[in-house]
């Protein structure tokens, strides 16, 4: 089977250029002075940051995590705790979230990253659910009723937008430079064949933990900005199934293990989800489910992969048939 449109370790360079251009355009969103539009795009940026986080461990390193929402939630609660102590600096929120998430990733990573395949996925899902459950039972963190956060006044509403834009940009550029560095090659080598990677001198456990920690820092930063922007956090919002699964679906749709993929996926899916919610109040999740089913069947390798496709419809049909039983 030929791999078409390989495009190097960062994925198709054309796709990356387009994505960078789109990011610059997104800086203009607050100029609309429309709170709704701004929130929609801020959510897109938030999902993008989380998708980049997932892409690093799931896409590049090949360890499919179902627990990255734990980092998002932890990040949000870092902001919540800081806010309760009178801190309102967004940089402080993000910094604390990154430290906490990295430490958490290292501690949990040692046992969990020894597991492979489905077992790793389930264990990480367990981690996420357990963290949510524990926070919901901790009175200091407001338990299941959550924490209210002081929101900036109307005039400064866009601050959150720009902060989220920075987090998303940081995640994207971070991914780009990591992928091209020695680190990126260690991740991909582990994904392709962990034993062969070890023979080449790669200490797999160390690099898996690094990948997971950076992944967690990206998701945690998104959570740290989400909390004050939303003005309120509780376990069900911050550990939502959506926040866990959307970034994964987005990365796959866009193209996992590429730099452009997570952003393209977030833009399309978060956008589509928003539109579906507007027009089909009741059935939007149904359409969302149908969409995932179709994407998986028709684009098993993601959209970025289409950029490198040569041979038109016939090549595409072939690509769909590759995985047939």
């Amino acid at each position: 089977m030929k791999r078409i449109g390989l495009g190097g370790i960062t994925g198709n360079p054309g796709a990356f250029a387009i994505v960078l251009g789109l990011m610059v355009l997104l800086l203009a969103v607050p100029l609309t002075h429309n709170g709704y539009v701004e929130t929609v795009f801020r959510n897109i940026l938030m999902y993008a940051a989380m998708a980049y986080g997932w892409n690093l461990i799931g896409g590049y390193t090949g360890y499919v995590s179902f627990g990255n929402v734990a980092f998002f939630g932890l990040g949000a609660y870092c902001s919540g705790v800081l806010a309760a102590h009178g801190v309102s600096n967004l940089f402080a929120y993000v910094a604390l979230a990154m430290v906490v998430c990295a430490v958490f990733a290292v501690i949990v990573g040692f046992p969990v990253l020894r597991l492979k395949g489905h077992y790793f996925g389930i264990a990480t899902l367990g981690v996420a659910l357990a963290v949510a459950d524990i926070i919901a039972n901790l009175d200091v963190l407001g338990g299941s009723s959550g924490l209210a956060m002081h929101q900036l006044d109307e005039a400064h509403f866009s601050t959150y937008y720009y902060a989220m834009w920075l987090v998303a940009l940081g995640s994207m550029l971070g991914t780009y430079f990591i992928a091209r560095s020695k680190l990126g090659y260690a991740f991909v080598a582990i994904r392709e064949n962990e034993d062969a990677a070890a023979v080449l001198g790669i200490a797999a456990t160390r690099y898996k933990i690094i990948a997971w920690a950076i992944s967690g820092m990206m998701a945690g930063s998104a959570g740290a900005i989400f909390a004050p922007a939303n003005g309120f956090i509780d376990p069900s919002i911050t550990f939502a199934v959506d926040s866990n699964v959307f970034p994964i679906v987005m990365t796959i749709l866009g193209g996992s293990g590429t730099v452009a993929g997570p952003f393209i996926g977030s833009l399309l899916l978060a956008g589509a989800n928003e539109l579906l919610q507007r027009f089909f109040v009741k059935a939007h999740t149904l359409f969302f489910g149908a969409m995932i089913v179709l994407i998986v069947l028709l684009l098993p390798r993601g959209l970025v992969w289409l950029f490198g496709l040569r041979g038109g419809v016939r090549a595409w049909i072939k690509s769909v048939q590759v995985y047939r039983a």
């Binding site: 791999r3 390989l6 190097g8 370790i9 090659y185 260690a186 991909v188 080598a189 392709e192 064949n193 034993d195 062969a196 990677a197 080449l200 001198g201 790669i202 293990g257």
Partner: peptide, 15 residues
């Protein structure tokens, strides 16, 4: 055991 999705040069470069 080549890393299938990497190029030939990248495979060697990892080493």
């Amino acid at each position: 055991k080549p890393f299938a999705s990497l190029s030939v040069r990248e495979n060697v470069a990892v080493g």
